[in-house]
Amino acid sequence: MSRTRGDQIRMSPQEIDEFLHGHWSAVIGSNGPHGIPHLVTVSYGLMDGRIVFSSYAKAQKIVNLRRDSRITCLVEDLGESYGSVQGVLVYGRARLIEEPDEIRPMMKAVLTRIAAAGRAITTDTMAERVVEKRAAVLVEPDRVLSWDHRRLDGAY
C-alpha cells in the first residue's frame, strides 16, 4: 500500500509539540453571530501541551466562544517557499476561564512565550494590570492535523 502525500508530510506527536513550542502566534477561528467564521491572530502559550490564550472578556472571539465553544487554531510557518511550509491545525473546544486566579497562570504562560520570542514585556506586571478585564481560553483538542512540506524534497 502506497503512502499518501498526507502520510508523507504528517508530523509525529513529538514534532508537533516541538513545533508548537517554537512559535508564539496562532490564527484562531470561532463561529461569528451570523454563521460567518471569525478569524483573528492571537499570542498563545502552552499548558500541559494544550494551546492557551487570553483576550478581553468583551472581545468578539470570546463572545463567539461563549455561544459556541467550537474553535480552530492554526500555527503555520510559511518559510521561504512552498517546499518549506510547516503547520499544525487544531480542531477542538474552547474552555473559557473567567476567574482571575485561574487566568493569571494562563496569561503568564502566554506572556512568557511572547518575551521568549524577543518581545520586550514584563510578564508579572502586565498580567496583573489587565487580568480583571480578561478571559482565558484553554483549547481542548478533538483533532490535530500537521504538515511539513520539507519532507517532500521539492517533489510536489
Rank of each mutant, 00 (worst) to 15 (best):
L74F: 02
E80R: 10
G83F: 07
G87A: 02
V110D: 08
E80P: 00
D77N: 12
R113D: 07
Y91A: 14
V75D: 04
V90M: 08
E98G: 14
G118R: 02
Y82L: 13
E102K: 13
T122R: 15
P105R: 07
S81A: 10
S81M: 00
S84P: 06
M106N: 08
G118D: 07
D124R: 10
I97Y: 14
R119H: 15
D77K: 03
V90T: 13
E76C: 14
I103W: 10
M106F: 06
I121K: 12
A116I: 00
L74W: 04
E99T: 13
I97C: 13
D77A: 13
E102N: 11
G87L: 02
P100N: 09
A109P: 08
L96F: 10
G87W: 00
R104M: 10
M107C: 03
V88D: 10
E98T: 12
E76R: 02
R104G: 02
R95S: 08
T112K: 13
M107S: 07
V85P: 06
Y91L: 14
K108T: 08
D77F: 03
V88W: 10
T112D: 14
R95C: 06
A116C: 05
D77T: 05
I103Y: 10
V75Y: 05
G79D: 12
D101V: 07
R95V: 09
G83H: 02
E76T: 13
Q86D: 00
A116K: 15
T125N: 09
A117C: 04
E102G: 04
R93I: 02
S81P: 02
E102C: 02
S84W: 05
T122H: 15
R93Y: 01
R113H: 09
I114A: 00
I103L: 12
L111Y: 14
A117E: 09
D77V: 00
P100V: 02
P100I: 02
Y91I: 04
G83E: 02
L78A: 11
S81K: 04
R104I: 14
D124I: 08
D124W: 05
M106C: 14
A115R: 13
R119T: 15
A94V: 04
T125P: 03
P105I: 05
T122K: 15
D101H: 08
P105V: 02
R113V: 00
Q86V: 03
L89Q: 13
T123K: 12
K108P: 00
M106L: 15
E80I: 03
A120D: 15
V88T: 09
R113F: 00
D124H: 07
A120P: 01
A116W: 03
T122G: 14
G87I: 00
A115P: 01
E102P: 00
R113Y: 01
R93K: 11
V90A: 08
I103P: 09
D101P: 00
T112P: 01
A94G: 03
D124P: 07
I121L: 15
A116M: 14
M107A: 08
D77Y: 01
A117R: 06
Y82S: 10
R95W: 06
